[in-house]
Design a protein around this nucleic acid. Structure first.
Lengths: 220, 220
DNA sequence: TGGCCATTGTGAATGCTTTCACAAAGGGGT
DNA sequence: ACCCCTTTGTGAAAGCATTCACAATGGCCA
C-alpha cells in the first residue's frame, strides 16, 4: 500500500463521523459531492482519499452509507478496542475521562498514573491512580499513552513510555517530543491554536488596512 | 505581505516557545540549525519561515534570542492582550481555566457561558457563569470565543458568536463549523487524533507484515 | 433490452510547501 | 587590513497534495 498523508487520514476520520451520524438517522446512500460539502472539502478530494484504499462507491449512485462506515472503521483500525493509559491525573485528564465519545469509538482508558503522593492510591474518575514510578511495568499491554503532564516533565515521561514498548502517544504538553521512528506521536497544543487565531486577527486587520489604503483600481 | 501558510505560523509559535525558554535561561544567540533541531524541523525551513516577515539574523552568527522573541511576538500579535469568552462550563472549560499558560501568553478568559440552569449565576473557577441566552449582547468586545459545548449544540452557538461580531473561534466540538470567510476557526479534535494513532498502529503492523512476507531481495 | 443520466475512479495539470545549494554577509583573529 | 569561517537569506529544484476533467460504469425507466 502506498503511503497516505496525515491529512487524508484526518479527513477519513471526519467522513466516518459524519457517516455514522447519517447512518443513525437512516440515510442509506450518499454521493461524494454531499459528503464533501458537509465536511468542508471537495468531491474530488473525497474520492481521491478513498481511492488509496480501494473502491467503495457505485457509479451513478454514490456510496452505501453502512458499507462505507464499515470500510472506514476497518481502514482506521477501529474494529478492535484499544487499551489507553492516561498519564497525569489533572484537569486535562479529567476532561478526557469525562468524554464518553472515546469509549464509544473503541478507546478504553484503563489506567491512570500520577506523580503526586496525594493522588496515588486514591480513586479518581472510577480508576485508582497508580504511582508513576510503576510506569514501565504497568504499561505492559497498553496500546496508547496519553501524556497530560507539565511540559517540563513530558520528555522524561515519554522516554519511559517508549521504553515500556508503547508505540502511540497522544501528547498534551506544549513541547517537542523525541521518540524513535517507530513510535507515532500526535500533539494537541491549544496554546499554539490560540496563537494562530491571534495571528489571523492581527493580519486580517493589517490586510484590511493595506487594501483600504491602496488605490481603488488595484483592489481585488 | 504575501500569504503565509498555517504551518509556517504554527512553527513560528513553536520557535517562540523555545526561544522564550532559552531567553529565560540566559541564552543570547542561536543559529537556525540549533533552533530547527530543537523544534523538529530543518534549518532551511526556519530561515524560510522567518524570511516571509523580514530579516532577523546576523550572517555567521545566528539570531539574537531576545530580538527574535520580540519579533515573533509582534508577528503573532502577542504584544497585546486578547479578551476571550469561554462558552461551555464543562470539563474541557475547567481544564482551560486551570491552564495558566494562556494568561501568560496574553489570552484572558474574561467570561463564561453555559446553558445549564444549575450553573448559571454560580461562581465557577473565579467567574460567574452567564446564561447563554445573553450570548449576543455579552460577547461585545470579545476577541476570541472558545466553544466547548457538545457537538450537537456547536453550530447554533457559533452562529450566535459570529452574529455578535467575534471573528476568531477555538472549537473543541468534533464537528465542521460553517462560518463566513472573515472568521478564523481552529478546531481541536482529540477523537480525530486518537483515530490517527489507531491508523498508525494498524498500518505499521500491516506494513511490517508486508515487508516480512516479501522475498528478501526486495526488502529496503 | 437499450439508452440516458448521475456519479465514480483516476491520470494529468496545477498549486503549494519543503529542501537544496550557494552567493552574500559579518565577525574575529592575526 | 585582510582572510577565514560560519551562518544567513533566497532563487531554483524537488516533492506533495489538491483540483481538474473525463472516460468508464452502474442503475433506472421506458
Amino acid at each position: 500500500m502506498r503511503k497516505v498523508s496525515e491529512s487524508t487520514v484526518a479527513r477519513l476520520s471526519m467522513y466516518l463521523r459524519l457517516l455514522t451520524e447519517l447512518a443513525a438517522s437512516g440515510v442509506t446512500t450518499l454521493a461524494s459531492e454531499e459528503l464533501a460539502r458537509r465536511c468542508g472539502t471537495s468531491a474530488a478530494q473525497v474520492r481521491k482519499d478513498l481511492s488509496f484504499f480501494g473502491t467503495f462507491g457505485k457509479r451513478g449512485l454514490g456510496y452505501s452509507v453502512p458499507e462505507l462506515v464499515a470500510a472506514l472503521r476497518g481502514i482506521l483500525g477501529l474494529e478492535r478496542r484499544w487499551r489507553v493509559a492516561l498519564i497525569g491525573a489533572g484537569k486535562i485528564g479529567a476532561a478526557l475521562m469525562a468524554y464518553q465519545d472515546f469509549r464509544r469509538q473503541g478507546f478504553d482508558i484503563v489506567t491512570v498514573f500520577d506523580s503526586d503522593r496525594e493522588k496515588i492510591g486514591r480513586e479518581w474518575n472510577g480508576l485508582v491512580v497508580q504511582p508513576d514510578a510503576e510506569l514501565k511495568v504497568s504499561l505492559k499491554g497498553m496500546d496508547i499513552a496519553i501524556v497530560a503532564v507539565p511540559a517540563e516533565a513530558a520528555q522524561a515521561v515519554v522516554d519511559r513510555v517508549v521504553a515500556a514498548g508503547v508505540r502511540a502517544i497522544l501528547n498534551f504538553a506544549p513541547t517537542k517530543l523525541n521518540v524513535p521512528d517507530d513510535v507515532a506521536v500526535k500533539t494537541v497544543n491549544m496554546a499554539l491554536e490560540l496563537e494562530g487565531l491571534s495571528y489571523a486577527l492581527v493580519n486580517d486587520a493589517r490586510r484590511a488596512r493595506a487594501v483600504a489604503s491602496r488605490p481603488a483600481a488595484s483592489r481585488g
